[in-house]
Design a protein around this nucleic acid. Structure first.
Lengths: 193, 193
DNA sequence: GGCGACTTCCTATGGCCCATAGGTTGCAGC
DNA sequence: GCTGCAACCTATGGGCCATAGGAAGTCGCC
């Protein structure tokens, strides 16, 4: 029988593409095997389990998201950077919903520290926020809130959570604007804390 | 053989409890059947499919969440209401993670309009926001953003998304404070739009 | 060239889950 | 007591995850 001649990365990209097409939770060993044209148990020559396959997608997706954000952020600062970051983030979530979901699965401390994508996204986020005048603790609080807002927005959007006729794009733009104002006027910013 | 004498609501609460215990995605017909002490196919006397079972949990959970929020909101207004709402929301998500997840599954327009829980949560949210001076469009934008922030925060928190040593409770409190400021200073608030 | 080791891939099997088909039994109402 | 329904059953099949154990292609080395 003809060898397909797979490499691990090919398996992961196939899984990631499938995730974007049918949803991350429907990424299954048998489905990926079908796509690759091999029998189901043959998958175990490339991955140890379905969980590991999904973690592979997570790491890949984080790398790609980091690339998108890095590109958007290049040469920008302040509010300009915030808008570019947010738009790149949402764009990624919309075009690659499966990959986006994957970036939010639980990884161990160990796995997370080895995922350069996750690390880079974190670093770029922190760097962007230094434009605002926030103390150490405030910085973490603000990062957590903004991250929550962006993640929440694109998550709710993806599941059709915004039923009101109001244009979602408009809400997004105004929301980012409001977040910028919030960061500028962060409570007790500048005061001792 | 002794009849268990089930009613549909008993099946749904068992499923909801299971969801809180092991995760909403692990709510399975066979697991619920085991808990109830009946054979797997007997489940089909009570629900049409696993999807319908999960939708039942979603409707139940929304009702309970609406109750929690309603109780927290009683007699409060303005910032006080925002804080009470947010805390009740997060408290629910923490104590009933499976139910919380359930409230975010996709329902049809039809199902949504018949879920009084979902309706009540929406209505209470809108009512709470009337304390802030926002135009029609701004109101929707603000509701969407705050909903995103709260949902995003509790979601990220539940998956261990906040790795930094900074106290998460502190971030939460300061975040709500910042959201209040943001709503008060909403961009172009009061201006023609 | 040919031998061995590794890798890729296979069939067979079993467990768990969803779902349907078709039968049995308890109970309510006449 | 009989009828009809609702609650429950066994049997079966399909999809998925996973392991066991074997076959075949490929590479290095003599």
């Amino acid at each position: 029988m003809a060898r397909v001649g797979l490499v691990a990365s090919r398996v992961t990209t196939a899984a990631a593409d499938l995730a974007d097409k049918v949803g991350f939770d429907k990424v299954t060993l048998s489905a990926v095997a079908r796509i690759l044209g091999i029998a189901e148990p043959s998958m175990y020559s490339h991955v140890r389990s379905v969980a590991e396959l999904r973690k592979g997608v997570a790491v890949l997706a984080a790398t790609e998201l980091a690339d998108c954000i890095g590109e958007a952020l290049a040469g920008r600062a302040g509010k300009d950077a915030l808008v570019a970051f947010s738009n790149a983030y949402r764009e990624f979530a919309r075009t690659c919903p499966g990959r986006y979901t994957a970036t939010h699965i639980q990884l161990t401390e160990e796995e997370l520290s080895r995922s350069t994508g996750h690390q880079r996204i974190f670093a770029m986020t922190m760097a962007m926020f230094r434009a605002y005048d926030l103390s150490e603790g405030e910085l973490t609080d603000a990062v957590r809130l903004v991250r929550s807002s962006l993640h929440g927005f694109v998550s709710l959007e993806s599941i059709g959570g915004f039923g009101h006729p109001r244009d979602v794009q408009k809400s997004w733009e105004n929301g980012i604007e409001a977040i910028h104002v919030m960061l500028t006027e962060w409570p007790s910013s500048g005061a001792a804390r």
